[in-house]
């Protein structure tokens, strides 16, 4: 297994947000987390990235435990890319500077040495002519693609996506989803929290339904969408997909 989450617990003060989550993600697989707002999807992704310390439980990446509180999170985060719903580009830097900052500081690579790889990434995601623009000169879809490029430039082993299309105008959603598809073809291991049910059904290898901080049900898209076993899963799908 590429990533293993074992019985993870997380509370904010007295609010229990993750309640013993266990999840296996195989190399090259795309796992989709679905569930109502507030069910803990974002928190789970942030815990995997070590932005939030977990209270209890273990997280394993490539056969090594990473959630040990005694470990320095910094080198581990470099191996795990994450993209957020609200892009979070650095507004005072051009797209290219956004992408180059972390590799420059962490790998001590010069701009010139980085440029070929970075240009290739921009090119691949249709951003070649936007490299020298500032974030506020880019559309939402372009910003989100830059954010993905920024995470990819660190050459992560696994990518986490937290509702990355939710803040986009409908006509821009597709260009971002295309990027995910293309990454899957490369064999990237991905975990994404999403409300794009159609996309999850078509592309995901595995779908997990989160409810109140627990994974209530998981399986292939066919299992979950066509044949949900839990009452709450059915309710949730009925609400997001509408009556059929």
């Amino acid at each position: 297994m590429k990533l293993q989450v074992k019985n993870v617990h997380k509370s904010f003060g007295h609010t229990k947000v993750l309640n013993g989550i266990s999840l296996d993600v195989a190399e090259g697989e795309m796992t989709c987390l679905i569930g109502a707002s507030g069910s803990g999807k974002s928190t789970l992704l942030r815990c995997i990235n070590l932005l939030e310390p977990v209270d209890d439980g273990e997280i394993w990446l490539d056969g090594a435990e990473i959630a040990d509180p005694a470990l320095d999170p910094q080198p581990i985060r470099q191996r795990i890319g994450i993209v957020f719903q609200s892009f979070n580009l650095f507004p005072h830097m051009t797209a290219e500077e956004n992408v180059m900052l972390a590799p420059r500081r962490i790998f001590k690579t010069s701009r010139d040495a980085l440029r070929p790889t970075v240009e290739e990434l921009f090119d691949r995601f249709g951003l070649k002519d936007r490299m020298h623009h500032y974030p506020d000169q880019l559309s939402g879809g372009q910003q989100q693609r830059v954010a993905i490029v920024r995470a990819l430039a660190m050459k992560p082993e696994i990518m986490l996506f937290d509702e990355i299309t939710s803040a986009l105008d409908p006509e821009l959603v597709n260009e971002v989803l295309q990027v995910l598809k293309s990454l899957k073809q490369d064999g990237m291991t991905m975990v994404l929290a999403t409300h794009e049910m159609a996309f999850a059904r078509d592309v995901a290898d595995k779908v997990c339904f989160l409810d109140k901080g627990s994974i209530l049900e998981q399986g292939t898209p066919a299992d979950i969408f066509s044949n949900p076993r839990q009452e709450r899963t059915r309710d949730f799908l009925a609400r997001v997909l509408g009556p059929r």
Binding site: R46, N49, L51, Q74, P75, I76, R77, Q78, R79, I80, G81, I82, F84, S86, N88, L89, F90, L101, A102, R105, I106, R150, A151, M154
Partner: peptide, 13 residues
């Protein structure tokens, strides 16, 4: 805080 998170998530110190 999302700016800090974005930078930290990339592995920056």
């Amino acid at each position: 805080a999302s700016q800090r998170n974005a930078a930290l998530s990339l592995g920056m110190s």
